[in-house]
């Protein structure tokens, strides 16, 4: 019996180590590729990168499945079949090794997820501001040809009235401007991430710090899309209410 336990434990350790080595090889090969694909991907939602990442995470999960199946079958199987004869040492050693393996999987998952870094939303926003500044005085009325200055950056289709002939033109913002609206909250979150971090790292949790973060985030959000301020503030009040319930 002792011998069987020893052998099984050894094989279990070797098996998990092989999986870990393979996992490492896969992730080391994938990380530079994930960075490259993120950079190359012209899609505003970076979906090619998303697909590749999902595929890699799927392979990590398959390796976890493989380990779980063997654990169920060979390790737990042996523990159950030998009953009281199994030493606690065997059980503990095998479980600890599996725990370490799971930890590895978790670490590699984070590495893959973070490999490409965040999209630089600030740079994109600044680009859009600059290109809007270039075009805002270049539009003319489709009816009389009179100049129409676009007073501010619009993010959705908007009626604009010609000052000369009163014709209703429809201004259609660029795809980039529409993306600014789509990304506004994420950009505000990027700008205020340091405040969220302060809240998250403080123990015990301090609701005042969260409120500080939330207010700052919404201020940034409103600054990016001023047209949405009224609606954003209603949402802000709702989050504040939810948060005070969570902290009760």
């Amino acid at each position: 019996m002792e011998e069987l336990l020893r052998q099984t434990q050894e094989r279990w350790f070797v098996f998990l180590e092989k999986l870990e080595v393979r996992m490492g090889e896969m992730c080391n090969a994938a990380i530079p590729e994930l960075k490259a694909i993120f950079k190359e991907d012209q899609d505003p939602y970076k979906r090619a990168h998303g697909r590749m990442l999902a595929g890699l995470l799927g392979q990590l999960r398959r390796m976890q499945d493989q380990a779980n199946e063997v654990k169920e079958d060979k390790i737990l199987g042996l523990i159950y079949s030998s009953g009281v004869f199994t030493s606690n040492d065997f059980r503990e050693a095998c479980f600890n090794r599996h725990y370490a393996f799971e930890k590895r999987c978790h670490d590699y998952t984070s590495l893959l997820r973070e490999a490409a870094g965040q999209q630089d939303l600030e740079a994109f926003y600044q680009e859009q501001l600059a290109s809007f500044a270039l075009i805002k005085d270049q539009f003319t009325c489709k009816q009389c040809g009179g100049k129409i200055a676009i007073s501010k950056m619009f993010f959705i289709a908007t009626y604009v009235t010609c000052l000369y002939c009163q014709t209703q033109n429809t201004f259609m913002p660029s795809s980039g401007a529409q993306m600014v609206l789509h990304n506004a909250r994420s950009l505000a979150e990027q700008r205020t991430a340091h405040l969220l971090k302060i809240y998250e790292e403080r123990q015990p949790k301090d609701p005042a710090l969260y409120q500080q973060y939330l207010r700052a985030m919404f201020d940034q959000w409103n600054q990016i899309t001023p047209d949405m301020e009224e609606e954003n503030e209603k949402f802000y009040l709702r989050l504040l209410k939810d948060n005070s319930i969570n902290h009760l």
Binding site: A30, Q59, M172
Partner: peptide, 30 residues
């Protein structure tokens, strides 16, 4: 390595659901 490379090519070669998002300039309509 080949597996990772294949995965990358597969990710790149698929069309995005609903087609590519065209990058349109701002315009005026009436």
């Amino acid at each position: 390595l080949t597996y990772v490379e294949k995965l990358k090519q597969q990710a790149l070669s698929q069309t995005n659901y609903g087609g590519e998002i065209p990058d349109k300039a701002a315009r005026m309509e009436i």
